[in-house]
Amino acid sequence: MITFESLSFRYPSADRDAIDGLSFEAAPGVTLLVGPEGAGTSTVLLVAAGLAPAETGGQASGQVRVLDHDPTTNAGRRELAGRIGYLQPSPWTQLSGMTFSAVDEVSFAAANLGWERQRILDAAQRALTSVDAKHLADRHPSSLSGGELQRVMLAAALATDPEVLLLDNPTSELDSVGTRRFLDVLASLPDSVTVLIASTDVDRAADAADRVILMDGGTVVAQGDASILASEDAFARDCLTTPALIGARSGALHPFPLTLTELVERVPSR
């Protein structure tokens, strides 16, 4: 469970708030954050992960609770250590650079938490298997392709069995097969896990999302189910699904069709 209440956050030296009086609640399940460039979706993840302002610098005000702890405080971050999995959009800079094989990279967080050795090795094997990357275990991380690396990093985020997963554009390096597998992984997570995804790939993420939050200018514009991705609000912010966009462009299909099936059904047949 993640709760934001009138939260504002400003990066150092920035002249406006990246998050501006944001309030929303993300229950267990998959919540999708979408918005145009600069909407603040990535920053929401950083705040929830306890990285902003602690690591980024800057100023936060308002309330944020993750699993009933405040990630903006030291005490809160201590309580949350290992219970949050966070994934950056670029898997290359996410690499620790401190390990010499994919399986050790997946084990990195658990090792840092001081877990017992056998427990770490088991968890890493499980996580690699769950993302279908067991065969990559002994490869050197720098020898992996972008897609392989993104899967390995997802395994790394999953390895500590987190109760909260914060994923920033997690499919940026994946092809369509990889993305489908990724969605399967999300679907196989226990129901108790809260997943927050910031994504520009609205088409595919829409399928997996239980809830969608549309953001702009650091605050919530609309929230609800996936049909938001076929709304006028989303249209104004370039966040429509492709079928909705086709519907919108072809004119007068109101409300826009959310899925391909809907689009086909509503296109007048000759």
């Binding site: 990285l51 690591e55 250590a81 290992g82 950056q88 620790s96 050790d104 840092n112 938490l113 017992e116």
Partner: peptide
């Protein structure tokens, strides 16, 4: 340019929990 993203990644992966890492 890499420093920011890399330090976020390391922080999110528990390098500063004050615990001694387990050798694998």
């Amino acid at each position: 340019h890499e420093v920011d993203e890399r330090s976020l990644a390391l922080a999110s992966r528990g390098v500063q929990t004050g615990l001694h890492p387990t050798p694998l």
